[in-house]
Structures are given as structure tokens and as C-alpha cells.
Simulated assay, not measured.
Amino acid sequence: MNLIAEQALARAKGILSPGASSKAPTRKFWTPNDEQRFAELYGNTPMPELIEIFGRPNHAIYGKAASMGLKRSEAYMASEHACRLRRENNPGVEFRFQKGQKPWNTGTKGLPSTGRMPETQFKKGSKPRNWLPIGSLRLSKEGYQQRKVTDTGYPPRDWVAVHALLWEEHYDPVPAGHCLCFRDGNKQNIELANLELITRAERMRRNTIHRFPPELKDTIRQLNKLKRAISEASDEKQND
């Protein structure tokens, strides 16, 4: 890593995680003595005490108990320390719907309109304000010009790239595993001579850094390392 990248990395970590250790947290393993003591205590010891004794979060305690096949004792399950849903037998059953019981709005479709609500509700057959008829053009987020060919209400089906329609008009549809690219890189230059049918594997190779000069590839790698370091430092700060 060059000097500029090292300085930027150190500055990013200092800003995002001041005072935080650069060392990754080490995993805490269970020793045989820990397991023996855990087996003795788990049946009747409340969770807060287990967390304090073994220095592990509750999900680690539950996971270890499951892996060792440990269960809470009947006395513990009947005590106030046990979860109410586990301690009680089918709690809240009197407040649930009984078999055959119908809700009050059975047979109705939604709630009745009140006041001026009907004035602002969609009428049958009405279209939203951003609706466009078949044949309309739009620009996708990726910069491709699209034409509306159907009106099903499902945009991925209704809108098709204009350059793909042009290709299908003169040739067959784009086969699976292939795509069209613009020879000059201009997505607005929709001419048949400017379109090239290539495999997606070839497109991936063209979009990788291996096509760049060595000095530019090294700069891109350093930039990606810096982005990862900033992301890791941000995650560490959020976890503190």
C-alpha cells in the first residue's frame, strides 16, 4: 500500500472508531470445566446469573444448552424466573378466537367510507397520475431508453429497452446468457451498427480491472481496500 493510501486509511479509522482497538475480538471457547459447571447450574439458575457467571450473552447460553441437550428443571419452569409463555399452560387462551367464531366484519370488503373519503378514492378504471400509455418512452435508472409495450401494471414486463426492440426487429430475441452492449459506450446512440451481442461472461471480463494499465489497476485496488477499511471501521463504531 502506498503512503497516501496508508495515511487515508489511518485517518478514516481514527475518525470512525476513535480509541477502538484494531484487533479483532477473539472467540471465547468453552473449557471442560466450564461445560461441567454449566451442566450443573443450567437446570435451576436464572439467565441473568448465568450470563454473569460465564460472561456470555443469553443467545450463547441458550445455544450451548441446546448443543449439550440440557433442559430447565420442572421446579424452575414453575417458578417466577421462567418465561411466562413457558411457565403457564396455554396463556391467553380465553382471549383468542374460538373455533367457528366469526369476526365482526365478516362479509364486508374493507371499512365503509365516511365524510369526504369517497371524493379522493380511486374510481373503477381510473389511472394514477404517473400512468403512461403504450408506446411511451422513458429513461431507466441505468440510463437505458425504454418503451412501454404492454399495460399489465408490472413494470419489468411492460417496459422494454429500445435497443433490445431494435435488435429483435432485425434479428432474433437476445438468447439466454447473452446481452447487448453499445460499441461506443453511448447508451443514447441506438443504432443497429452500434449494437453488439456478447455473452454475459464476456461482459464481465470487459468490466473488470484487468483491461486497465498496471498503474491504474494498482490505484483501483488501493481504493477498494480503503473503502473496505472505512466500512469495517464504521461497523466497529456501530457495534460499540
Rank of each mutant, 00 (worst) to 15 (best):
E6T: 10
Q7H: 06
A8H: 01
I15N: 01
I15P: 00
G19K: 04
G19H: 03
S21C: 09
S22R: 08
P25Y: 00
T26D: 08
R27Y: 04
K28S: 12
T31F: 02
D34P: 03
E35I: 13
E35P: 07
Q36L: 07
Y42E: 02
Y42P: 01
G43T: 02
G43D: 02
N44G: 05
T45M: 11
M47P: 04
P48M: 03
I51T: 06
F54N: 02
G55C: 05
G55K: 01
R56M: 10
Y62D: 06
G63A: 05
G63L: 08
M68C: 11
R72F: 12
R72I: 13
R72P: 14
S73T: 06
Y76M: 07
Y76S: 10
A78L: 11
E80L: 14
H81I: 11
R86M: 11
R87Y: 13
E88F: 04
E88K: 01
N89Y: 08
N89Q: 13
P91Y: 04
G92E: 03
Q98Y: 10
Q98W: 05
P103V: 15
T106K: 06
T108H: 09
K109T: 15
K109Y: 09
G110C: 05
G110M: 10
G110V: 09
P112D: 09
G115M: 03
G115E: 04
T120H: 09
Q121R: 13
F122I: 15
F122T: 13
N130A: 11
N130I: 14
W131T: 09
P133A: 10
S136D: 06
R138F: 15
K141G: 09
Q146L: 14
T150N: 13
D151K: 05
T152G: 14
G153E: 06
Y154G: 08
Y154W: 08
Y154F: 08
P156W: 03
W159A: 08
L165D: 00
Y171M: 14
G177L: 09
F182T: 02
R183T: 06
G185D: 01
N189Q: 02
I190D: 00
A193M: 04
N194T: 03
L195T: 02
L197W: 00
I198T: 00
T199C: 01
E202W: 03
R203T: 10
R205S: 11
N207D: 13
T208G: 14
R211D: 07
R211V: 12
P213N: 06
E215R: 05
L216M: 10
D218L: 15
K225M: 12
L226G: 04
K227L: 15
I230L: 08
A233D: 02
A233V: 05
S234E: 14
D235L: 12
E236N: 14
